[in-house]
Structures are given as structure tokens and as C-alpha cells.
Design a protein around this nucleic acid. Structure first.
Length: 275
DNA sequence: ACCGGAGCCTGTTAGC
DNA sequence: TGCTAACAGGCTCCGG
């Protein structure tokens, strides 16, 4: 399940093979994957655009293209982007293929979007804010301070775990890193946000940044379907403290990890360490 | 403002 | 063994 660290890893891996490359055309095998524009217009507008930059905003991959176009991809649960030789066989889960203009000295290749569960979505827009405009702050940017976190919580009375998953409050945190951050900050996932002390908000701020950075360092968590663009696994699944460790001993105190459902999401925590 | 539930999807796993 | 049902969670939308 790609979250901020997984998407960041994908973005970093795609820059080398893609920046400066030009799209020839796109083959759309499952039209609903493209939110806008229509498939016909998508093909017309993507043709002959050159990739100038690839960046991440929250869990979105943002391709800045020539011709004033922006290609935006959300991997959702099982989406996977990879640049592969055109001769590579594509399986039934490849729903979108971008043909690239060949580069001398480089094997002909393509950008492919593979997505088992078809939750992933693609946008081609002139104004990226129409897709990204309502997202909360990026937790790893310098501007994301304790004061900003406090401000994001102000006036809200919500259970902290679902609040962390709300992309409009803070962007990029998903189920794995929400559980990990709450464990690191020693905060019970069912606590109400307005009951957190100054110290707890400070701890949570630090914990969020710590676990996300750890995820990036380890190139993501290959827990369900996530793999890096080159097909290899990340390493964060070997470094989680609580996520999917139900009944296994807490690494800090030995108490079996508890699993509950919050906001429809499985939630893992240590009853002894988190209050 | 917030919450819960349905819906989108398919591969994997639990249970009978 | 073979079947069905539940489960996984990214996000949006809807009703309360």
C-alpha cells in the first residue's frame, strides 16, 4: 500500500530513466483508470510532451510536462509504475502503457502502469491544483513545524488515528505509518486529538517525521503488493514496530501487540506503551 | 464538523 | 479437497 515513503521511492527511481524523455503515445486498456480528460483527448494531449520533472505531492506522483501539461498518478493500493523494455511481456494487470520516443544507445522502452485492483487513478491537467489543491501540508518539509501540527488539530475533536489518515489535515500518512508514528509517540490510537498535551503533540510531530524518513531510507514497506519500480522489495517491512504484528511481543516491553478496527482500518498498538 | 458505511477492485486466506 | 466468504486499505461519496 504505497504511502508517502513508497511513493517517494518510486519518484526517485523514475527520474533517471524518464526525465528528458518524450511521450509518443499512450495505450489505454482500462479507460476508467483515467479520471480526466477523456481517453481520446488524453492520447492527443500526451503525445509529443516531454517530461521535465517528476515530483511527489502527498501520495500523488506529479510529472511536469512540456506544453503546460501535468500528468498525475495515484497508485492507491496496488498500483505500480515501471520503465521496462518494450519487448517485455505485459500481463493482464497492465492497464496503461506510455510509449516513449527512443533514445540512441538505449533499448526501446515504455512506462507501464500495472494495477491489480484497479484503484489507481491518472489525471492529465493544465492546472495541478485542481487535483492537489485541498491536500494538507507535507510532513517532511521544513515548514511543517509543531506549531503547524497544532494548528491543523485546532478546533477539531477527532480520534487521532483516523485524523492522521485524513489527507486534508496532513498529507502522505497511510495505515502503516499512522500506527508506527503513534507507537513512537506513545499515544493510544483511540485518543481524541483535543486531549493531546503540548508534549504529546511535539512527540507526535517528531514521530511522524521520524517514521516517514525511516520508510524512505528503507525504500518503502513491501507488505502487500508494493515493490520498487525495478521489481525489488523495500525493507521497511522488516523494521515496523507494530504494524501487522498482532499478538507478537512489543519490542519495547514484550506485551503482545493489540489489533483493533478504527475508522474501518486495522490498527495495531501496544496497550502497555501507548496511553 | 464529524462519523460510519458503501463502493470501487482482485488476489489471498480463513473457514466450513 | 473445494468451495464460499471475509479481508486487505487508498480514497470519495452519501446520509445522519
Amino acid at each position: 500500500m504505497p504511502e508517502l515513503p513508497e511513493v517517494e521511492t518510486v519518484v526517485r527511481a523514475l527520474r533517471e530513466p524518464l526525465i528528458g524523455r518524450t511521450f509518443l503515445t499512450a495505450h489505454i486498456h482500462w479507460p476508467r483508470q483515467i479520471v480526466q480528460p477523456t481517453p481520446h483527448e488524453f492520447k492527443q494531449r500526451i503525445a509529443n510532451t516531454t517530461i521535465e520533472a517528476i515530483n511527489r505531492r502527498a501520495k500523488y506522483i506529479v510529472f511536469t510536462l512540456s506544453n503546460d501539461e501535468t500528468l498525475i498518478v495515484h497508485l492507491k493500493m496496488t498500483g505500480h509504475l515501471a520503465v521496462v523494455p518494450s519487448s517485455t511481456l505485459a500481463d493482464k494487470h497492465v492497464h496503461l502503457v506510455f510509449e516513449l520516443v527512443d533514445v540512441p544507445g538505449r533499448e526501446p522502452d515504455q512506462l507501464r502502469f500495472r494495477d491489480i485492483r484497479k484503484f489507481g487513478r491518472v489525471y492529465l491537467v493544465k492546472q495541478p491544483e485542481t487535483v492537489l489543491g485541498k491536500l494538507g501540508p507535507e510532513p517532511l518539509e521544513d515548514s511543517f513545524t509543531v506549531a503547524i501540527l497544532k494548528e491543523r488539530f485546532a478546533g477539531r475533536k477527532r480520534v487521532i488515528k483516523p485524523l492522521l489518515l485524513d489527507q486534508h489535515i496532513i498529507a502522505g500518512i497511510g495505515n502503516i505509518y499512522a500506527d508506527e508514528a503513534l507507537f513512537d509517540a506513545k499515544i493510544h490510537p483511540q485518543r481524541y486529538s483535543h486531549t493531546l498535551t503540548e508534549q504529546e503533540i511535539t512527540d507526535l510531530h517528531q514521530a511522524i517525521r521520524k517514521v516517514l524518513r525511516k520508510g524512505i531510507e528503507r525504500e518503502g514497506a513491501s507488505i502487500d503488493n508494493y515493490i520498487k519500480p525495478d521489481g525489488t522489495k523495500g525493507d521497511m517491512q522488516n523494521a515496523v514496530m507494530v504494524f501487522r504484528r498482532t499478538e507478537h511481543p512489543c519490542y519495547d516491553c514484550g506485551t503482545p501487540i493489540t489489533r483493533i478496527v478504527l475508522g474501518g482500518r486495522s490498527t495495531h498498538f501496544c496497550q502497555n506503551c501507548q496511553h
